[in-house]
């Protein structure tokens, strides 16, 4: 795998992310995979389209991974999808390798929460009736001091 943090229009491969952060020095390898759900807020979802401002999103993913690696003794890989995804497809995948399980779990949780807060990605749900809706989100703020 060329990069450990990236945005892609191709199907995600969580196993490849896990392999990328695995090490004989590690005793733990945790992963988180976000997938498209079939029902949301009482509506039957057929698909979700992910829009993304890619250059900034990839920089933010790298910054988030670096922040996790600074906070815990972990190695992190993370990838986010773009495009139209069917129900069950993976939209985001995170892998964290570490010496022990606690920091691997905590790093995965930290990374997904930061993604939701600061990575420029938007999703539009497509419903079985043919209509669609952009989901509400979290307003961005300048992160530098």
């Amino acid at each position: 795998m060329r990069r450990l943090t990236f945005v892609t229009a191709s199907r995600l491969d969580p196993a490849a992310l896990c392999r990328a952060v695995a090490s004989p020095r590690h005793g733990a390898l945790a992963s988180f995979v976000g997938t498209v759900r079939a029902v949301h807020a009482g509506r039957r979802v057929k698909a979700v389209s992910y829009d993304c401002f890619v250059p900034l999103a990839e920089k933010e993913l790298a910054r988030i991974a670096a922040a996790a690696e600074k906070r815990w003794p972990v190695r992190v890989a993370v990838a986010h999808r773009t495009g139209r995804l069917k129900v069950g497809e993976a939209s985001v995948a995170i892998a964290a390798g570490s010496g022990h399980r606690a920091e691997a779990f905590e790093a995965c949780r930290f990374v997904i929460e930061e993604i939701k807060r600061r990575v420029p990605v938007w999703k539009k749900e497509h419903y079985d009736k043919g209509d669609g809706r952009w989901l509400a989100g979290c307003a961005l703020h300048r992160s530098r001091p």
């Binding site: 900034l56 961005l140 300048r142």
Partner: peptide
Amino acid sequence: CVLATDDEVLSSSDELPSGRLALLPPVCGG
């Protein structure tokens, strides 16, 4: 919504830099 470059989100008092500019609504990735 906020304005952003390839590298960072701009605060309202920031001067517009040269290069690519994007208008970004509240985000909801994952």
